[in-house]
């Protein structure tokens, strides 16, 4: 992992225009003011509840949705792209460098195509390979990396289990030789016993091929075991961002703490010890003023209801956006 960022965003916002009737229109701010650097070769985790904007952020970085404000750039040392302004041929070119692995391996694969055709499709669409033999060779090579054998390539997706299907999705994302992969809840639909297997495969591929991953998940324990760096999102904003080690050793934002606390412990004697978060994430169309988390925060005081905290970065790189984090940290240490 190096320090130069592969993906870098500055004040990135995504706004959707909602039509609520003939003359009623309003804006939904799904993602607002995101400034992150994803270092080359890193496994960058994005965590948050549904509705926190994590998927939208991932899609914005792939130009699957339009960026309304701010900038996002891709720079792998050879080519640079300004993601926000990509279109036409340049966008197709960018897609060779940046790919997506979907959440649901049952919905992501066409039931009418053989596994070989599914994996080969990106090559044909992007015109990466010239001949059929070249395509087949490339498909076989990538399939082997994802532990799929020749026999598998001839079959249709319905013959595969969830874990195998997710390996097919991974192979399809990797076949164009991308450098940046967005994995959106890629293990959420899998059984626990298979989940570990797919995570290990992703890590192994990342190390072998020197890829940069953005790993989107709602499950902190999964993120903890795979990512180098984690950003926690709430209602379209990053509320805390740090290396995995720092974040787990000492979470600073009350929301991060609550997320940790909500993970069901494997120890039956821990029952009832978890710190519970009341209420639900507010609707992005009707965001609370001040700190977006104050409606559910057990530590909220008057200032939290009126002023929005800035994302403060300490010298060690641990960033948090909370008015009271230093105070709360001192309290918990005492």
């Amino acid at each position: 992992m190096s320090d130069t960022p592969l993906i870098s965003t500055d004040g990135l916002s995504v706004t959707f225009r909602i039509n609520a009737g003939a003359f009623k229109k309003f804006d939904l701010k799904a993602v607002e003011g995101i400034s992150i650097d994803i270092p080359k070769g890193s496994f960058f985790g994005i965590v948050g509840e549904s509705g926190s904007g994590k998927t939208t952020l991932g899609r914005a970085l792939l130009k699957a949705v339009d960026i309304s404000e701010g900038t996002a750039t891709y720079d792998d040392g050879e080519v640079q792209y300004d993601i926000g302004s990509l279109s036409g041929a340049e966008l197709t070119e960018y897609r060779k460098h940046a790919q997506l692995i979907f959440q649901d391996p049952y919905a992501a694969l066409s039931p009418r195509m053989t596994v070989r055709d599914i994996i080969a499709e990106p090559l044909e669409v992007m015109k990466i390979t010239k001949t059929r033999t070249e395509t087949d060779e490339r498909v076989r090579e990538i399939a082997a990396k994802c532990r799929l054998n020749l026999e598998h390539l001839r079959r249709f997706p319905h013959a595969f289990s969830g874990g195998q299907r997710q390996r097919i999705s991974i192979a399809r994302a990797l076949v164009s030789g991308p450098k940046f992969i967005v994995a959106d809840e890629s293990v959420a639909a899998l059984d626990l016993s298979i989940q570990a297997d797919v995570l290990n495969l992703l890590k192994q591929i990342q190390a072998e091929m020197g890829l940069t991953f953005m790993f989107i998940s709602h499950d902190l324990s999964v993120v903890a075991h795979t990512c180098d760096h984690v950003a926690v999102m709430y209602l379209g904003r990053i509320v805390e961002s740090a290396t995995t080690r720092d974040l787990f050793a000492q979470p600073r934002h009350p929301y991060t703490k609550a997320l940790f606390s909500a993970i069901p412990s494997l120890d039956p004697d821990d029952r009832g010890k978890a710190q519970k978060l009341e209420g639900e994430i507010p609707s992005p169309t009707n965001q609370p003023p001040g700190c977006k988390f104050h409606t559910r925060c057990p530590y909220a005081i008057d200032i939290c209801k009126s002023a929005e905290p800035k994302l403060e970065k300490s010298p060690d790189g641990h960033a948090v956006s909370c008015h009271r984090w230093e105070e709360l940290l001192a309290e918990s240490a005492a």
Partner: peptide, 14 residues
């Protein structure tokens, strides 16, 4: 196979 939070370095065993 369950990811454990008290030891982040422990490998996941499928």
């Amino acid at each position: 196979a369950l990811p454990k939070l008290d030891d982040l370095e422990a490998p996941l065993v499928p």
